[in-house]
Design a protein around this nucleic acid. Sequence first.
DNA 1: ACTAGTGTATTGAACATTCATTCGGTTTGC
DNA 2: GCAAACCGAATGAATGTTCAATACACTAGT
Lengths: 196, 196
Amino acid sequence: MEPIADKKKAIFESTLELVREKGFHGTPMSLVAKRAGVAAGTIYHYFESKQDLIIELFYYIRDQIIAVLKSEDAASVPYHKCFFRIWYGLYEYYSQNPNVLMFFEQFVNSPYNTCVNEANRSEFHKYLFGFFERGIREGHLKPLSPKILGTLAHANIISTVKMYSAGHLVLEEGELKQIPQILWDGMRAQSVACKV
Amino acid sequence: MEPIADKKKAIFESTLELVREKGFHGTPMSLVAKRAGVAAGTIYHYFESKQDLIIELFYYIRDQIIAVLKSEDAASVPYHKCFFRIWYGLYEYYSQNPNVLMFFEQFVNSPYNTCVNEANRSEFHKYLFGFFERGIREGHLKPLSPKILGTLAHANIISTVKMYSAGHLVLEEGELKQIPQILWDGMRAQSVACKV
DNA sequence: ACTAGTGTATTGAACATTCATTCGGTTTGC
DNA sequence: GCAAACCGAATGAATGTTCAATACACTAGT
């Protein structure tokens, strides 16, 4: 994987910022160009069209998120610990990259999402679901579909970050620790004695 | 609250469909008009601008969702039961109105969301958080902020519906029952004996 | 070392199109 | 007969994209 050309990266970052500020429809190519410090025509040297730019950008950040996932997952670490490490890892990443989160959320809820073929979209899911598949297999988690557990976990993280960045969340000491705990308590294999 | 004029409702429904199909930026007023069976100018009789239309539409569906919430919440029903009733109620509503869900998600992740003042946005939250406040007060739920529990619960419902409507979820018998159960197990006040 | 040559990167003004909005006129309901 | 509802072609601004021209990087030949 060769390093991304400077200008290409600048165009990505510029688009990320603008989409957060103004949405897809309020982000003209002329502004993308200006903020990236390039000419309008240059964008079309790297990308076929606006749609192409946005889809490529989606892949670009998808790979970053996968990297976070990989860095926090380790078969040598106890599963329970990995679970929390991944939770915090993604939480940190999204918190520190709010542009990414907003773009991501706008993207997956927009018709662009259907432009991405299944294989590419689920590259991220492959890793996420794999982790939960392991948890089920090893008996740490309730025996549901890994897809379900993975999706619910991710939604949990994302909505926590959104609360935080919207300023709705007073991060009282320990409150941040209890959120992944809710998730864990809900998903972990219940001992029979606990049935209410 | 007087009943909404036929044309106005037609414009709302048309916009809902189109936003799902093509996103905000791919939804021209001319198409909204055509699909609603009205002239372009008529839209401007009911709404000041496109932005106004979209924000009004947001209120329109917000009120529908509040209605679902109210219809499933009843102080006379045991809390635990209400919890599941609300979960299924919203699940059903979003499942049967996928346009609403898509619009809602696009809206809250877009800059339009910042056009809505806090009081209006949180009209829905008022009811949702109120329900969780009660659960905490009565000792059914973990003593976290109602905002946190409410937001996590809603995210849980929404991502379940999205999984379903994306076709990723094989609704094996009982699998749908386990998802709110995960939520409940995570949020309910843990009896001390259960600590692992 | 110098030149000519070749392909890539970059520019930004110009173009064609799209789209939100307007407005003068027409219909409808009372 | 009047006001509100409605129409839809016209308008003007905004925007994605193109393209002819320029700058740059690199090689090969002398």
